[in-house]
């Protein structure tokens, strides 16, 4: 045990191991703490937080699909003030880093949330640029390089924490958006967010989701995610948090070999509430069995 080092450094923040949670799948850790010792996780990435409370979309918000699920929660959240007063004190009881995921409908909203959270006791920001830009007719910020760069550079002015930008995979060339985010000032990147999907109930002849379409996640998306992490890690020079269908340590190692510094466990938490802790233990075991002293030995080893 003692001769392996599972620590990783994400934008100057040292995580004791590379495992965190995918935003939105783990709440703020409270519910899952009945199953997982949060002290074991490198970081907890909390559900999206906006400057004001968001009510989210109408139900149904969940649809199961082959090898995964769709969600159209619509980033329902009680707002930054609630988060600061309730969730941070809870998470600070544990020896784990806090990554706060920030969302907004406009550049102003993103900046306001970043400002509110900057003086709070969190370690890293993760900017969710998969939200619709209301002033641009609802186009997703993260699908247009110029818009992505703009929102990142504006938020950067208002934030006192390292800024990770979370990329949407619903683009033609993920490396183009990755470069735009980095030139906007991103200190790190995380990917992938969910793939846009749809499911139709053939008995009712209607979409299962009230919102018609929703984000596709789960084991079925993993090959797409590994490919994108691989491409992005080749294209830019900032640390990457890889995610998308990670259910076990083997999946996590794949992402690390593709170039990711840290990994996030998301939808797997629904199938197995112990998933995060099991991935941590699995990585340790894998390192011991393969005489790996530090994860840098295998990070990005794929040409």
């Amino acid at each position: 045990m003692s001769n392996i080092n599972t620590e990783v450094n994400i934008c100057g923040v040292v995580m004791k191991n590379p495992v965190t949670t995918a935003s939105g799948t783990f709440g703020s850790g409270r519910e899952f703490s009945e199953f997982v010792d949060l002290n074991k996780l490198g970081a907890v990435t909390v559900k999206g937080v906006a400057s004001e409370p968001w009510k989210g979309n109408n139900a149904p918000r969940i649809a199961e699909v082959y090898g995964g699920m769709l969600n159209s929660v619509g980033l329902q959240n009680p707002g930054a003030e609630y988060f600061i007063n309730n969730d941070i004190p809870f998470l600070r009881q544990f020896d784990t880093k806090i990554i706060v995921n920030i969302c907004g409908h406009s550049i102003e909203e993103y900046c306001k949330a970043a400002e509110m959270l900057s003086d709070s006791d969190v370690d890293l920001f993760e900017l969710n640029i998969s939200c619709p830009n209301v002033s641009q007719g609802g186009i997703t910020f993260g699908t247009v390089p110029s818009m992505a760069e703009k929102v990142v550079s504006e938020v950067k002015k208002h934030c006192k924490k390292p800024l990770i930008v979370k990329l949407t995979p619903n683009v033609t060339d993920i490396t183009e958006i990755a470069r735009a985010a980095v030139s906007g000032g991103a200190d790190g990147l995380s990917l992938i967010n969910t793939l846009l999907g749809m499911k139709i109930d053939i008995k009712r002849r209607k979409p299962v989701l009230f919102n018609k379409v929703g984000g596709f996640s789960g084991p079925a998306v993993k090959p797409v995610a590994v490919r994108m992490v691989y491409q992005v890690c080749k294209a830019v020079d900032v640390p990457v948090i890889g995610m998308g269908g990670i259910s076990n340590y083997e999946d996590a190692i794949e992402f690390i070999m593709a170039g990711a510094t840290a990994v996030a466990v998301g939808t797997a938490n629904f199938n197995n509430p112990f998933a995060t802790a099991e991935v941590v233990e699995g990585i340790e075991k894998y390192m011991i069995e393969n005489s790996i002293k530090d994860l840098s030995e295998i990070r990005g080893i794929i040409d």
Binding site: G27, N58, R61, T267
Partner: peptide, 17 residues
């Protein structure tokens, strides 16, 4: 009843107004 993912209050998948 509502469609659920986590079942424990973490994902906000099962909303009722």
């Amino acid at each position: 009843e509502e469609r659920m993912a986590c079942g424990i209050g973490a994902c906000v998948g099962c909303a009722v107004k």
